[in-house]
Amino acid sequence: MWLDLALILIVCLGVVILGSSRLGTMIQLFAAQSLVLSATPLLVHPGKHAVVMTMGTLILKVFLMPNLLSWAIRHVSIRREVQPLVGYGKTLMLGGFLMGVAFWISFRLELPVRETSNLLVPCAFSVVMVGFLLLVSRFKAITQVIGYLVMENGIFLFALLLLEKTPLLVEMGILLDIFVGVLIMGIVVNHINQEFGSASTVNLTNLRD
């Protein structure tokens, strides 16, 4: 029962991120979502393995990455998100529609999920969809990075299904990779900012045919 609550909370936080416009709040919301996320392995089946997972997510996604992002914001000195591709209201509506699609797909696929709750797969799908929508609809580079991270959270939810199966080494490798990915994105955002004076990807469109 606690697991379902956590899943719903993660999905709602995702939607709130989608709706928010100020970068600072978005980073804090992401940190909150990662916090709830790190709790879920313990809820599914507590054990030595789960503890390591929780600690890993806590260190990386709750402390390290948000600080990195906020450092990037201060460094790049942008506060407010410019109008997204289709306007806030419509993005939220689109988010809702995509969640509907996610639920419909996971229902149609009737994937055999064993002892964990049947809510897990749809929620994971919808968080991935929300992250993707965030990635697609925003112009600021930092927001796109946050969208990418929300999508990673969704993928992490799926990983819960096979918690004790995959060896630890692979788990850590995955987390490490995500971290390095975000690190490089941060560096590139830094370059964008130096070159274009603003971290918005609006003027990143002269490579076309």
Binding site: V136, S137, T201, L204, R208, D209
Partner: peptide, 17 residues
């Protein structure tokens, strides 16, 4: 048909989805 490569990253991601 060259308009497919329109330069907007968002569109490219949408193609994949």
């Amino acid at each position: 048909l060259k308009v497919i490569q329109c330069g907007y990253t968002q569109w490219y991601l949408l193609y994949i989805l």
